[in-house]
């Protein structure tokens, strides 16, 4: 059974339909890239998968748990990193921020400290792990947020534009981390505007536009549908045409 199955989910806010019924799945050890312009419905889809928003129709299952009916169990399985401004407790140190979320997931003592130290090494946060995050740069905060997302070693990881604000070397570190997690069998949903990044990291892509799923498959399969090779151009062609690719 696939760790993530999304069947016919949609989301309406009053009379506005943010996400039209969409279906996709993500296999174990797979990275699915979610691509779309701002307002395409990517974040709403991720929020539904993360139990924050309730789908208007359809069903989402994470590691067999139904998001709508077993929200607490789903939350233990996932780690989510939201896009936009990085939300942090600014008066707490980076370690305290990560530890607070770790304790909420049941980690404690030596196990928690070791996990934080490992993440600090992986993300090269050693120089600032014990400093308050208030004055941090956006890139530093993003690293802390990534560590916070991964502190409980989740099986399913939802990353909403995770490399936004990271400098080049930090983005490289992060991409290496994604590769490591994929090799460790993690299931990853990854949204980005950076097509190069998507091509490097993702096994398959899902393209959304104005709440609709236009394509779901591998990048070679997407290229095979058109004579356009460049992924950016192909994406623009697709969203301006706006028709789903069979």
């Amino acid at each position: 059974m696939e760790p993530v199955t999304v069947k016919g989910i949609s989301k309406c806010f009053g009379t506005i339909t943010a996400v039209e019924p969409l279906t996709f799945s993500i296999r174990k050890g797979e990275v699915l890239g979610l691509i779309g312009e701002n307002g395409a419905g990517k974040t709403t889809t991720m929020r539904m998968m993360a139990t924050i928003l309730k789908p208007s129709t359809g069903e989402i299952r994470i590691n067999g748990y139904c998001v709508q009916k077993e929200a607490m169990a789903v939350r233990t399985q996932i780690g989510i990193l939201f896009g936009g401004d990085v939300g942090m407790y600014n008066r707490l140190t980076a370690r305290e921020n990560i530890a607070f979320f770790g304790t909420l997931y049941g980690l404690a003592g030596m196990e928690l400290n070791k996990r934080i130290d490992d993440l600090a090494d992986m993300l090269e946060m050693g120089a600032f792990i014990d400093r308050r995050v208030g004055p941090f740069s956006r890139g530093m905060k993003q690293k802390v947020a990534i560590a916070r997302t991964l502190v409980h070693d989740p099986q399913v990881i939802l990353l909403d534009e995770p490399t936004t604000g990271l400098d080049v070397s930090a983005a490289v570190i992060f991409r290496q981390l994604i590769t490591t997690m994929r090799q460790a069998g993690k299931t990853i949903l990854f949204s980005s505007h950076n097509m190069g990044e998507i091509e490097k990291l993702c096994d398959r892509v899902a393209i959304m536009h104005k709440g609709k799923l236009l394509f779901h498959g591998t990048i070679p399969a997407l290229r095979a549908k058109s004579s356009i090779h460049d992924l950016d151009d192909l994406f623009v062609h697709l969203v301006t045409g706006g028709k789903p690719i069979e």
Binding site: A73, V86, M88, Y105
Partner: peptide, 11 residues
């Protein structure tokens, strides 16, 4: 600040 959104995804 966005911390509440992260908090409500915790179990």
């Amino acid at each position: 600040r966005g911390t509440l959104e992260t908090l409500i995804t915790a179990p």
